[in-house]
Amino acid sequence: MTTFDDRERAFETKFAMDEDMAFRVTARRNRLLGQWAAARMGLTPEETDAYAKAVVQADFEEAGDEDVIRKIVGDLTAASVEIDEATVRQALDDQMVEARRQLMEAK
């Protein structure tokens, strides 16, 4: 039974590591997306940092990406930046790739 127990522990450990990495990638993606949106709104570096943190926090409102997309589109529209949801979704995808790249390089 020891071999079976060892395999089970190994799978549990791998699952935990994968979940942790997925969380970190999503948080990094949201921060990068916040920086992307802040640049379009013309925010200062201090405002950009605060806004990026607010975007990361917005992701905890509900499961999925809709809360983040809704925040970005709403904030850009309020700042008189013409943007559509498709553009924000594309930026979200682009930032996901960048976030993964950054985290893989950091290892």
Rank of each mutant, 00 (worst) to 15 (best):
M1E: 05
T2H: 12
T2F: 06
T3L: 11
R7G: 02
E8S: 11
E12V: 02
T13I: 03
T13C: 08
K14T: 03
K14W: 12
F15Y: 12
F15P: 02
A16D: 04
E19C: 13
D20Q: 13
D20H: 14
R24H: 07
R24P: 00
T26H: 14
T26R: 15
A27G: 07
R28H: 07
N30E: 09
N30P: 02
N30V: 02
G34T: 00
A38N: 05
A38G: 04
A39T: 08
T44H: 10
P45I: 01
T48L: 06
T48P: 09
D49W: 07
A52I: 00
V56M: 14
A58Y: 11
D59N: 13
D59V: 01
G64R: 08
E66H: 10
E66L: 06
I69F: 14
I69M: 11
R70N: 14
I72A: 09
D75L: 00
L76M: 14
T77F: 11
A78M: 07
A78F: 08
A79D: 10
I83P: 10
E85T: 05
R89N: 05
R89H: 04
A91L: 03
D93H: 15
D94I: 01
D94S: 12
M96W: 13
M96V: 01
V97M: 06
V97L: 09
R100S: 02
Q102G: 02
L103Y: 07
L103W: 06
L103F: 08
K107P: 00
K107E: 02
